Simulated assay, not measured.
Amino acid sequence: MEIITWFRESVMGNTLMVVFLVAFIGYLVGSIKIRGVELGTAGVLLVALVFGHFGFEVPDLVRELGLICFVTSVGFIAGPKFFRNFKLNAKSYILLGLIIIVAGALTTAAIIEIAGVPSDISVGMMSGALTSTPGLAAAIDATGSANASVGYGIAYPFGVVGVVLFVQLVPKFLKTDMAAERARFEAAQNVGDDALKKKEKLFIVDEMGLCSFALAIVLGIILAKIVIPLPGGAEFSLGTSGGPLIAGLILGHFGYVGNISLHVEKSVLECLREFGLAMFLIGAGVEAGAGFIEILKEQGLILFVYGALITLIPMFIGYFVAVKMMKLSLFNTLGSICGGMTSTPALGTLIRVTGTDDVASAYAATYPVALVFVVLSCQFIGIFL
Rank of each mutant, 00 (worst) to 15 (best):
T366W: 01
D194N: 11
T131A: 07
G233Q: 06
T356N: 05
A139P: 01
I310C: 01
F384L: 13
M17S: 15
I217S: 07
Q189L: 03
Y152K: 00
P345I: 15
G36E: 04
V37N: 08
I3Y: 15
L169R: 08
S145M: 05
L303A: 01
I383M: 13
F316E: 06
P345K: 09
V164R: 11
A234N: 11
E235S: 10
Q168W: 14
A224W: 06
K327G: 02
G40T: 13
I140Q: 08
N89A: 10
A139I: 03
F280D: 09
I222Q: 10
P314M: 02
G151F: 07
T131H: 07
A364N: 00
G283E: 07
V375Q: 00
L238M: 14
F373R: 03
Y306E: 02
F292R: 08
P368A: 04
G276P: 12
G97V: 02
V164P: 10
L223M: 08
K172A: 06
I112G: 00
T354F: 06
E294G: 15
E186A: 01
L219A: 12
Y152C: 09
N332V: 01
S31G: 15
V164Y: 09
L210Y: 12
V22G: 04
Y156G: 02
G258H: 01
G124Q: 03
D60C: 05
M341E: 00
F236E: 03
C338M: 01
G128L: 10
S329M: 11
E9A: 14
